[in-house]
């Protein structure tokens, strides 16, 4: 049996009362203005969240003590329509330079000065795949098992 089942991506759709240019700008350059202060992975308290506005730009936090901690990077920078980010944070909430899941955000002009935002966080099976060195010791069967497990868990 070589069935591959992956966990469903997280999908959100929302509408904001602003044109796409503004929505994109607040999401990116203004990320520190809305990012939940409680959610960071560095040892120090979150000073600010930063998203560098370009392809390949860094996505990171600066702690109140000035220490920096990477979160990921910009995979696709297409203002004001689309932004794709690599989320290099593992299931253990640590930074992993090699493994990531994808956050994909589309901004669509819905007229009347509003923007429809289609948000997707996908590739969640990799949160397991990158979970640690235990994986390296396991044979190729683990992916199937993970798939089976997730299928059952979501049934």
């Amino acid at each position: 049996m070589s069935q591959t089942i992956t966990p469903a991506p997280i999908r959100k759709t929302l509408s904001v009362r602003a044109p796409p240019e503004k929505a994109f700008e607040v999401f990116t350059a203004g990320i520190d203005r809305w990012w939940p202060r409680t959610h960071h992975i560095g040892k120090a308290e979150l000073g600010r969240a930063v998203l560098e506005p370009r392809n390949g730009g860094r996505w990171y936090e600066v702690g109140v003590d000035g220490s920096e901690c990477e979160w990921g990077e910009v995979l696709l920078w297409e203002p004001p329509r689309r932004l794709m980010l690599a989320w290099h944070i593992t299931a253990q909430f640590t930074y992993d330079p090699d493994g990531y899941t994808e956050v994909d955000i589309r901004f669509t002009d819905a007229g009347d000065g509003t923007t429809r935002i289609d948000f997707e966080h996908r590739g969640l099976e990799r949160l397991g795949a990158e979970a640690g060195s235990t994986i390296a010791r396991m044979d190729s069967g683990w992916g199937q098992i993970l798939g089976l497990f997730l299928a059952a868990a979501e049934a």
């Binding site: 904001v16 809305w34 990012w35 939940p36 969640l124 497990f149």
Partner: peptide, 27 residues
Amino acid sequence: PQGLGQMRAWLDRFWDAALAAFQAEVE
């Protein structure tokens, strides 16, 4: 069913909160 699905559930809740904060900030 609560095992490995937990991480997904956590992220789902996290993005709900984060996107609501983003929406409030834009508006």
